[in-house]
Write a protein that binds this DNA or RNA. Structure first.
Lengths: 135, 135
DNA sequence: CCGCATCCCTAAGGATACTG
DNA sequence: CAGTATCCTTAGGGATGCGG
């Protein structure tokens, strides 16, 4: 793990390039929320607290195993709270913390980007695959 | 795969919640760039074109296998160009496309977020693990 | 220098069945 | 309802060695 910050002399042509710090720190976080389900969960919880099976239904296609694990991860990172009401049947509510809520804005920036360029990317893929198939 | 857009009546308490569309479309894209290396590559290429081993060195800790695969993925999605100069020894340059470059902005939004809340998240994890260990 | 092919091991993740 | 536990299959990813 290095990501050398010195030695920027190698190449510096086209763009402004105002990054260079906090790159390696971003990766682990992006992976945390870049997994198959976490963003979906955050998105749904952005609409207010949800119960376990409510989440499961609204997300669609997730197993309870993965929902549990994903929620645990988000809870662990302080993005989501888990509130148990020990009634019968038991009731558990999940909600975004302030931290989790603050993630929604940058997330939507990516969302916008993805939505804007979705077709372009699909086209690029199709194109790439087509000429790859033609050897 | 559903993510029902209707039936928002279930819960709508705390936040403004201006999302609800393009959620399922975001996930695959986030996974594409949320893998272990892609963002790092995009970040480094943000500083200008790089050769293969140049990238490898600057990223640090990546195997050439994964670098190749990641670059192929990025190329396939039209985020990166691959330019071969058939000299001896051969020379291959990678650079961001306009599309790839446009990704840097939203990416840095997440980067900022991650950097800002890094400590908080670490603390939350430590806290969670501590009380989990205490059963 | 670039990168494909191979081997191999681990983690991710789905399906199902069972508990408080 | 809200999980936990188990099984099993696949994808991710490192190490190494060869080839243009």
């Amino acid at each position: 793990m290095s990501l050398a910050h010195k030695d920027v002399t190698a190449g510096e042509a086209l763009p402004p390039a105002p990054d260079h710090a906090g790159c390696t720190r971003v990766a682990p976080i992006l992976q945390r929320i870049g997994d198959k389900w976490s963003i979906l969960i955050v998105m749904v919880l952005g609409g207010g607290p949800r119960r376990f099976n409510e989440l499961k239904r609204q997300i669609g296609g997730i197993s309870q195993r993965m929902l549990t694990l994903s929620l645990r991860g988000l809870e662990r990172d302080g993005l989501v709270t888990r509130t148990v009401t020990p009634s019968i049947p038991p009731r558990v509510d999940y909600a975004l913390t302030e931290l989790g809520d603050s993630l929604r804005a940058p997330m939507q920036a990516i969302g916008m980007w993805a939505d804007t360029h979705y077709e372009t990317i699909q086209a690029a893929r199709a194109n790439f695959d087509r000429r790859a198939e033609a050897e």
